[in-house]
């Protein structure tokens, strides 16, 4: 079976969605040290919100996209302010945070079920227009998705590497006490990264909504694929999630081509155990913490 370039394009589109989710994890982990399992929940809520307001209320798609990103941004900052900060202040135990975030993901799922219903939400693309290249139809929505996702990855990369507040995130992640002593506004920067992470996850969910056929169950699935992309890429640079996302998507597409689509869950498990066993720090890493 020949692999067509259009399949490659769709693998890239899916890979970029994974990359955005992994990037959201990356930002959250960078300043709070927390793997925020609720990331997929934000994406699911944003995707369902986008789909429902466009289809059921008739809001213009672009406006709906903005609204979805705004809501996800709010969810990200609320998570930091109301869940992670109070728990981390009292417990040194990572375990309690893991449980709280699992509870949060469940709450988001049930809340979305109340708001948007429990069946799959049909979402329309940003625009229905398409063009033809070499006999293949390419949707404008897909092109927008790819360009927008790449732009976000590059912007975040530049921000983290060059921007003033972006570099502060690294300082907080490396040594919180030293950062505080230097007068870095730790809580404000944390809030900034948490809300940015929420917004990015929301963008990923809303852009993927037309093809993904999201349900409230998608929150867990999206959380898992995003985390796996992060695990594969590592947390060394802001571009590691991009590589991780693309690698995961290509692996997935390849596996379903060879073994059939039911092999997906096994592949995920195998990939994760393999990465954990061989290169637990991911493809790209910088050793900053030894504890």
């Amino acid at each position: 079976m020949a692999i067509h370039w259009i399949d490659a394009l769709s693998a890239v589109r899916v890979g970029l969605m994974y990359a955005l989710l992994a990037l959201a994890y990356f930002l959250f982990a960078r300043t709070t040290g927390t793997i925020n399992f609720a990331i997929g929940g934000y994406a699911m809520v944003a995707g369902l919100l986008y789909g429902s307001v466009v289809t059921r209320v008739g809001v213009p798609p672009v406006l709906a996209l903005v609204a979805a990103v705004v809501v996800a941004t709010a969810l990200g900052s609320l998570t930091e302010a109301l869940v992670i900060r109070p728990i981390a202040a009292r417990h040194r135990d990572e375990f309690v945070v893991v449980l709280a975030i699992a509870a949060l993901l469940f709450v988001l799922q049930q809340l979305a079920g109340m708001l948007f219903g429990r069946r799959a939400v049909v979402a329309r693309p940003l625009t229905d227009s398409a063009f033809t290249v070499a006999g293949q139809t390419v949707g404008v929505h897909d092109v927008i998705t790819i360009v927008l996702s790449l732009a976000v990855v590059v912007l975040v990369g530049l921000w983290v590497a060059r921007g003033r507040s972006g570099r502060m995130t690294r300082a907080i992640g490396d040594n919180e006490d030293a950062a505080r002593a230097l007068g870095i506004p730790v809580q404000r920067i944390r809030m900034l990264t948490a809300s940015t992470a929420g917004g990015i996850a929301g963008l990923a969910g809303a852009l993927a909504a037309p093809q993904a056929g999201l349900t409230i169950q998608s929150g867990v699935t999206l959380s898992i694929v995003g985390f796996i992309a992060l695990v594969i890429g590592g947390t060394g640079t802001a571009y590691a999630p991009l590589v991780g996302g693309i690698v995961l998507s290509v692996l997935e597409a390849g596996a379903s081509l060879i073994f059939g689509s039911a092999s997906r869950d096994y592949l995920m498990l195998a990939a994760v155990l393999l990465v954990f066993a061989i290169r637990p720090e991911g493809l790209f890493s910088t050793r900053v913490r030894t504890t």
Partner: peptide
């Protein structure tokens, strides 16, 4: 045994995937 060296979030992910794989096996494969 497969998750001997993992802890925290990574352990949560790996064990959750193991559960998903078993569910996949039961429901389809």
């Amino acid at each position: 045994l497969a998750t001997t060296h993992l802890s925290g979030f990574h352990l949560a992910l790996a064990t959750m995937l193991a559960g998903l794989a078993v569910y996949r096996w039961i429901s389809s494969t």
